[in-house]
Write a protein that binds this DNA or RNA. Sequence first.
DNA 1: GAGTGGTCTAGACCACACT
DNA 2: GTGTGGTCTAGACCACTCG
Lengths: 259, 259
Amino acid sequence: MGTAQLTAVPEPKYWHLRTVLLRAIDSEFATGEVIPNERELSARFGVARATLRQALDQLELEGRLVRRRGIGTLVAAPRVGVPVSRREEGWPGGSEQSWQTVDCSIAPATEQLAAALNVPVGETVYTVRRVRLNQGQPVATESLHVPDSALAQLPEIRLSGTAGEAADQGRAVLRRLERLTVEGESRAVELGVAEAEQAALLQRPPGTPVLVVTSQYASGGRLAALAVATYRADTCRLTFGETGLVEVTPVPSAVRTAS
Amino acid sequence: MGTAQLTAVPEPKYWHLRTVLLRAIDSEFATGEVIPNERELSARFGVARATLRQALDQLELEGRLVRRRGIGTLVAAPRVGVPVSRREEGWPGGSEQSWQTVDCSIAPATEQLAAALNVPVGETVYTVRRVRLNQGQPVATESLHVPDSALAQLPEIRLSGTAGEAADQGRAVLRRLERLTVEGESRAVELGVAEAEQAALLQRPPGTPVLVVTSQYASGGRLAALAVATYRADTCRLTFGETGLVEVTPVPSAVRTAS
DNA sequence: GAGTGGTCTAGACCACACT
DNA sequence: GTGTGGTCTAGACCACTCG
């Protein structure tokens, strides 16, 4: 008991390591720089590689590190702010260049989907899949579900190009949606992980943490469309700026006052 | 090459395990039920315990499982929808019972905080810390930063009770804020991890994933307050319902059409 | 081929909750 | 005390990127 009261609260090694590494990457490394490899770091700190990796896992979840197989571990760039609230961004017709239609499928509503769209089971539902790009990199995927009955009052659109192509069909659905007057929209955000399909579109391995944004669009007193978008949690900060009155501050994630 | 094309894409074991376990908890277990312990599951599936734990980690991140030391691993309840957009919820004065003031500190703005609030370094800033409760359980913590200059035009409030108490002081600041007319607010959501202080308030271990909500409130053409709230990512689904026209659907997280 | 991160193993001990 | 999840170890091999 001679050395008592040292680290009276035995904080886990990996958590302490995270703190040490966080300070290091904040002060000694620049964005995009590679930090020493895992075997060297684990040796330097006198821990097993698995323990060191636990610390790196945390920092990666926080978006501070990026690990690339065969390359190394890099200091991540600050997260990019991605607007999701304004209709111009989330709804077809706005800054179109940020969304890119992948394909479209037509199928009768499953029980689950029918309940979410508030339509009878078996009703025809269009599903448009899109990818959102930011500076050339995919940051989100989206599945936009539109029941056929919501499009019924809208004029049909015939495409000039090769009809029948999946992506073209998706674009046709989007064009018709543009003519819809949206009276209300509500959104929900939660944490999820990307399954194989979405992970591939995001160019990330399965299990990648994502922010799942569920958007409901109301028109004519009913639910006209349901969008489920998954944003890369490591690189994205979702912004809901109703009014652009105040510029978005960088990231005061750990704002502390000396109390 | 006799057994070729079997599992041509060698999916990691832990990912496959996750899929199997997910199906199991969806079909064979009820909310709150404990699933077999890790040592038994790892034996049953013929994998090391660390590999099994990797699968459980994923499911816990998705909010499907809750692990309690000394107890076991339980099937988690569906995430609760937590409104964060409407002023009545996030701004003082609304449904007061959901937020509980912890304490308040007064300090000159640090460089970082000054930049975020757009005030000169050293200006007096009130910081009110609150905890948001949902059905008795803490779901979020918040630090609300208010520069003194934003309160200058508001009448002072003298408390009837024991003045000087930290929580009372916080409530006094909140009461004054209620009288402020807010013209604009913008929000950002990103993924983070809870540090020691916040983790304790949320009754979770450090490193717990959280959804960090940064809110800016504008008044009189300037930034009047900055709130940084951390919501438990495992139990919360943040809802941004501008208009309550459409009820929020359960969770169509993996809505798929047979394509 | 050399170096990197990703996966997996088979153990060990600890902290905690119940009985 | 017994059983649970939490941490940690010291290895091994694989998949990928590069020169």
